[in-house]
Nucleic acid binder design. Structure first.
Lengths: 146, 146
DNA sequence: ATACTTGCAAAAGCTTTGCAACCTT
DNA sequence: AAGGTTGCAAAGCTTTTGCAAGTAT
């Protein structure tokens, strides 16, 4: 599940399963999400799709897609919510620069998945999922500071 | 670092070091935070301290305390920001019920700390810190659903 | 034809800012 | 006395809601 095309296809199939209508706004939103492998904020998404689709529609659609399990919400900063496609086998943990806000994904966060299993077993919680962000000052910002 | 009294003492000492004035609002805010071991939302804090201190002051003070390293921001839900005292040796990872919102802390999230070290080494990021939340349906909500 | 979706306008929340008055040092 | 702090009012953002018009099935 790597190329934007495959991701888009997966999202569309997901949407069809949930008996929802395939409207233009939904298609272009899924398309935009398929292109971005890292979380996109609603603000940025709104700008990218401006003219094509109303911001209100984006908000409503994101809620809907989240319920349907097509996207995952990511809370990178306090001021804005971001979303990523919840395509199977993709990373869910991120490394964020405190200074410039650059996001990168974490290649190997396997330990967190194992921890998740342990927590599920111990706590009795069902439908366990998680969100983990690591923050710091990236190399670029470090050299810029000198 | 367990009892509210010790936590409060630590926070006060921390504040003195940062050359800031010890005003009434600051003291009662630190006191409230010392009592809550788990993250408190600004909304709840505002209600608890209503009459004692203005909401605007709480917002400003929290920013200030965060800069000073006295508190840590926690993004449990998209709509509201919460804060906890950043007292040394305390947990930073939480287990949250998707349904009722109950928060509990995670007794053993050691693997995440180790992962953090690895990430620091590999990425070259400085001042690494993290935030991890695990979500699911708690036992109470599971039985309530039946 | 039906009922789900959208867009617009407006409302509702949460957070920040300006400024005069106040209080700690 | 000096300058950091606070409270009030108001502004700024982000997110949600109501409702009529539009559209996929």
């Amino acid at each position: 599940m790597q190329s934007p095309a495959k991701r888009y296809k997966w999202a569309l199939a997901c949407l069809k399963k949930s008996k929802s209508r395939l409207t233009h706004p939904r298609k272009i939103i899924l398309c935009a999400l398929a292109v971005h492998k890292l979380p996109v904020s609603l603000h940025v998404l709104g700008e990218e799709l401006s003219g094509e689709c109303n911001l209100v529609t984006i908000y409503r659609t994101m809620h809907y897609l989240q319920e349907a399990g097509v996207v995952r919400q990511v809370k990178l900063t306090a001021r804005c919510t971001s979303f990523v496609l919840a395509a199977p086998g993709e990373h869910c943990d991120y490394l964020v620069c405190d200074q410039c806000g650059a996001i990168s994904d974490l290649p190997d966060a396997q330990p967190i998945l194992e921890l998740e299993k342990q927590i599920a077993a111990r706590s009795g919680f069902r439908a366990l999922h998680h969100e983990a962000e690591f923050y710091g000052i990236c190399l670029d910002c470090q050299s810029a500071a000198r």
